[in-house]
Simulated scan of single mutants.
Amino acid sequence: MPELQDVLQKHKGKLPRFQPAGREVDIFAIPYRDKVRETARQKRLLQEQEAGGKNAKQLQAEQKKAEKERKLQERRQKAMEKGRNPDKKRGRNARIVDEWDDLAKEERLYKKLRKGKITKEDLEKELNEE
């Protein structure tokens, strides 16, 4: 947008009254503009705090954050088991090679299943270990 470009050039990349919000923003403290909706929200928040403390949206947000953290730790652990450094950024070619290796392992397991050397449960177990 041209008008923003003018402002940025005028202040040489620094906006005069800009305050960064930080990582944690309490979205539940932002009021509605509509007075009726805001009073209803305040009543609901008061009831939820009396009932048990945190409201349902906050609990869902915390659960989602915990699940994301758990998945990240699980992914890091799998990478470390494979002998990789999870903090190191992997190149595109290395990721492609890894995917091909995983596909080849899956194909070998499926071939064993067709020949009757392993059961379907064994196949599922091996695939879920990845």
Rank of each mutant, 00 (worst) to 15 (best):
P2A: 15
E3Q: 14
Q5N: 12
Q5S: 10
Q5A: 14
D6K: 15
V7T: 13
K10V: 11
K10W: 09
L15I: 10
L15A: 09
P16E: 09
P16N: 09
R17I: 07
P20G: 04
G22H: 02
E24M: 11
V25W: 01
F28G: 04
A29F: 03
P31R: 04
P31E: 03
P31F: 06
E38V: 00
R41M: 11
Q42C: 06
L46Y: 12
L46W: 14
Q49Y: 13
Q49K: 13
E50V: 01
G53N: 03
K57M: 08
A61D: 05
E62A: 03
E62M: 00
K68M: 12
E69H: 02
R70P: 01
Q73Y: 10
Q77V: 05
K78L: 05
M80G: 00
M80C: 05
E81Q: 13
N85K: 01
N85H: 04
D87C: 06
D87P: 05
K88A: 12
K88G: 01
K88V: 02
K88N: 05
K89F: 05
G91W: 03
R92M: 11
N93A: 15
A94N: 08
E99T: 12
D101E: 14
K105H: 13
E106K: 15
E107A: 13
K112C: 06
L113F: 12
R114Q: 15
R114P: 05
R114N: 14
R114D: 14
K117H: 10
I118S: 00
E121V: 11
D122H: 11
L123Q: 07
E126N: 08
N128D: 15
